[in-house]
Design a protein around this nucleic acid. Structure first.
Lengths: 191, 191
DNA sequence: GTCTATATAGGGATAGAC
DNA sequence: GTCTATCCCTATATAGAC
């Protein structure tokens, strides 16, 4: 929490450490994030990790912020695409961020600060999404309010990617077909 | 993996250790599961944990099996209820099992054996569910194939409970309303 | 069936040299 | 800004006493 003595924020080494932490979390889970392992992954000495981040919790929190910025960016790109709904869906079922997402969810359940930050960020993203959906769904109002649709699409996508991650895919093809049929309905090709 | 020297399966102490492990995972995450902490939670000595479970991985796997049996049981109860769809939904949005579920997902991503066991069990559960849905949806065929519906409902429910767990609930009310409207449609009160 | 003792490794964090 | 050395704690796992 409190910075006792800390390296500069724009340091290349700091950046390296954040990237290494992210990679470690994806590959081995948050439990594998120790100063020693992060350092080994980043190719620096362990003490440097403690120099830039005063605690492991701070490292984890900064690693989340580091990734969240990129996520928001990609969502904004999707919303600006020719078919925003299709683009949002494609983004949501992208498996790349998912292992990390699960780790962060688990982490959020047990570290108050990280949970609060994730909730803040994710709620912000979802509000932007719901606003965009409100415009896009104006001609198809019987699918429910945009806030609900946003939750539902995100939930389905997360389930698909999470389960696929552990090699479980029963019913996935059918579920995807349902969603894609719906997408084509509210956002047809010529739109 | 291999049992070198191991206590009997019906031992009350063993049971106690499994329950303690489950409680620990829910409260503090899988990373908090150590022989010492499990023992403290269970009120036994650390060495006993290693006596009953030859490794931490085995303890985790057995803890999963222990809980999975109960889950299948509750699903079967739901399928036998007066309104099975409503009962299934109520079960899916029950927050009790969810913190544990997230931990197991995260764990499954990093421990091959546990992932395989979860996939096996969950696929089995979902098949049973899909078979039941096939019967229930016979009169409402335009909602897509039952396997897909099963995935979709599970995904939405998981999102609701997961997010609520970290204090995020934007759009939840609306999403629930959409699902409940659908449930009432295919399974009306007088059925 | 239970427990003590111990080997061995890895963890976070700090003080202080360079 | 970087690194060494070190403190002290916790981890798993085993051998063997009771």
């Amino acid at each position: 929490m409190a910075a006792r003595r800390v390296g500069s924020v724009q340091s290349a080494t700091r950046q390296l450490i954040l990237e290494a932490t992210q990679a470690l979390m994806v590959a081995q889970g948050y439990a594998a994030v120790s100063a020693r392992r992060v350092a080994a992954q980043a190719g620096v000495k362990p003490a440097l990790v403690q120099y830039y981040f005063s605690s492991m919790d701070e490292l984890l929190l900064e690693t989340y912020r580091f990734g969240a910025a990129r996520v928001l960016e990609r969502q904004q790109e999707a919303l600006a695409a020719a078919r925003p709904l299709h683009a949002l869906w494609a983004l949501a079922v992208d498996p790349e961020r998912t292992a990390l997402g699960i780790e962060l969810m688990a982490l959020a359940n047990h570290r108050k600060e990280i949970g609060a930050e994730i909730t803040r960020q994710a709620t912000h993203n979802r509000k932007l999404q719901a606003e965009a959906l409100a415009r896009l769904l104006r001609d198809a109002p019987d699918f429910g309010p945009p806030e609900g649709v946003s939750v539902i699409l995100a939930g389905i996508a997360r389930a698909l990617v999470m389960e696929q991650g552990i090699g479980m895919d029963f019913g996935h093809q059918e579920a995807r077909a349902v969603v894609e049929r719906w997408l084509a309905l509210v956002e047809p090709e010529e739109a």
